[in-house]
């Protein structure tokens, strides 16, 4: 009993430590996103009240690496487009098949577009695309950063007087949030297309009927809820994968463990944040 409690306590402590590490990383990312011009204004103000050497001569903050951001947008966002489109296409189809039972029973062809669209836009689309993105991009990111950590590339950056969070992490976080935002929009469109096609093929619902049902019954807010959720999921995936990637200890075994932890943590973060957002964004 005591042993079980001790292990439980250890796991709880480890969980809190990881959550703290992710929160700390989030704060560092926010700090790095403060424009250098604002920092200079702040330093000028501080000069009056705290004339230390750091304040008198604030270090030059290099701009965020646009090249890194573009590289990551291409690698994470553009490259994920085919798999996300495929997922979304069949998600639209699945929604139609699930709704088909009721459509047939109640002759509610006119509600098919609304039903499948509502589910895809608000819930199924963001979650499935988020999980797919986490499996493809989050795991890759954790592995890449983990390998960079164990091969001293992160230390190499610091030795060159380059802040790894600003240079490596911030572009990845931005790229993942922007990618999820854009992928969700594309995914929603493809899912609607898939829903229309499967609705016609399986249930004989006309394209126009599906379209008007969608247009007349859904609000822009339903679509926006999904976009907000996807962006939050992108943030969650980026922070968990970057945290576990840069906290790797050991060699290849440590990298493998980091990838595993990153994917599990991202899935948990997606489901928990989805629950909270669903409560808030009704």
């Amino acid at each position: 009993m005591t042993e079980a409690l001790r292990k439980l306590g250890e796991r709880a402590l480890a969980l809190v430590e990881e959550a703290g590490g992710i929160a700390l990383l989030a704060l560092k990312v926010i700090g790095a996103l403060v424009p250098p011009r604002l920092l200079r204004v702040g330093a000028a103000g501080l000069r009056l009240v705290a004339p230390s050497r750091e304040v008198r001569n604030p270090p030059r903050v290099p701009p965020l690496s646009g090249r890194e951001l573009l590289r990551n947008l291409d690698k994470m966002g553009v490259s994920s487009l085919p798999i996300v489109a495929l997922t979304a296409f069949f998600t639209g189809g699945i929604m139609v098949i699930q709704s088909g039972i009721f459509v047939k029973r109640f002759g509610a062809q006119g509600l098919l577009g609304w039903g499948s669209g509502y589910a895809v836009f608000r819930e199924v689309g963001p979650i499935l695309i988020g999980l797919m993105f986490s499996g493809r991009v989050g795991s890759n990111n954790a592995a890449e950063l983990g390998t960079m950590t164990v091969t001293e590339q992160i230390d190499g950056l610091r030795a060159l007087a380059i802040e790894p969070v600003r240079y490596l992490i911030v572009p990845r976080v931005l790229a993942m949030v922007i990618s999820m935002f854009c992928l969700l929009i594309v995914g929603d469109l493809v899912a609607v297309g898939g829903g229309m096609l499967f609705g016609k093929l399986l249930l004989g619902v006309e394209f126009s009927s599906f379209y008007y049902s969608l247009r007349d019954n859904l609000r822009p807010w339903d679509f926006l809820v999904g976009v907000i959720k996807a962006s939050v999921f992108g943030l969650a995936i980026s922070l968990t994968s970057c945290h576990f990637g840069t906290a790797v200890k050991g060699g290849a075994v440590g990298v493998g463990r980091a990838v595993n932890d990153a994917v599990v943590a991202a899935a948990l973060a997606i489901l928990i944040s989805d629950y909270l957002l669903t409560l808030v964004l009704r």
Partner: peptide
Amino acid sequence: ATEERLMLVRARFGMLFQNNALFDF
């Protein structure tokens, strides 16, 4: 030193790591 000061000091160093630490991307 603070991390900001350390950055300035490190800019005066050049370092070759045991594993070279070349950025593979």
